[in-house]
């Protein structure tokens, strides 16, 4: 039996489409965790990245934070937080946010730094306020890179939220962890497929957002 057969069997079993362990419920949970963590991480990473990038200060501190954030193993952190704080949303959110902040922070900073300084100079020279320069001159140009940072963060969250099933969280990872435990490969492969599809949908979503939000004058390259 190969993987495709497992996938087929998993999705055609109607039992997988209902109830608290049904695909819609698990998918909903997974999306919910992802959005929560992403919003939290963006709320932390974006403002700091934008402001430090705009003023061009604190780059070294940011790269230290990023290195530290990357070095922390998310899976280990997940288990550790659960050990310390018990089961629940908080111990799961902490590693997800820790995971997602560095890419958002660093790419936003780099994106702002890579904006051509001459339009900024011109804008200042024509009497634009600093906040307006940030949002109307730098941000539109930095947007593609900033979005790619958010995209990395989102994809990493989707991926790590899967592992979170190990610490009794819901989401699509449940199928994989339970399936492995029950030696039910159909379930394992089905779950893996769903997670992969969700990750790809996330990718596509960000691509679509970039198409709409990024000015055609910036998009070429």
């Amino acid at each position: 039996m190969n993987v495709l057969n497992f996938v087929n069997a998993f999705f055609s079993d109607s039992a997988h489409w209902h109830g608290y362990d049904g695909i819609p419920a698990r998918l909903g949970e997974h999306v919910q965790y992802t959005l929560q963590a992403l919003l939290l991480a963006a709320a932390i990473g974006l403002p700091i990245g934008l402001v430090t990038g705009h003023y061009g200060r604190g780059g070294n501190a940011l790269s230290l934070v990023a290195t530290a954030g990357r070095a922390l193993p998310s899976f280990g952190l997940l288990v550790l937080m659960t050990t310390l704080l018990g089961f629940g949303m908080l111990p799961v959110m902490i590693p997800l946010v820790v995971l997602a902040v560095p890419p958002i922070l660093v790419t936003t900073y780099e994106a702002m730094r890579s904006v051509d300084p001459s339009p900024v100079d011109a804008a200042r020279g024509m009497g634009m306020h600093e906040s307006r320069i940030l949002f109307q001159v730098e941000l539109p140009v930095a947007l593609p890179l900033i979005l790619s940072g958010l995209r990395s963060a989102a994809i990493q969250i989707v991926s790590t939220a899967t592992i979170a099933a190990y610490v009794s969280l819901g989401g699509l990872g449940r199928y994989i962890v339970d399936g492995l435990y029950q030696r039910n490969y159909e379930k394992v492969v089905g779950g893996a497929t769903l997670v992969a599809v969700l990750a790809l949908v996330t990718l596509a979503l960000f691509w679509a957002v970039a198409r709409v939000a990024v000015s055609p004058g910036v998009r070429r390259r």
Partner: peptide, 16 residues
């Protein structure tokens, strides 16, 4: 600044 036009070397146009 708004009462003075300002032109710089590479034009500094807003590419977006």
């Amino acid at each position: 600044r708004r009462s003075m036009g300002y032109v710089i070397q590479n034009a500094g146009l807003f590419q977006h």
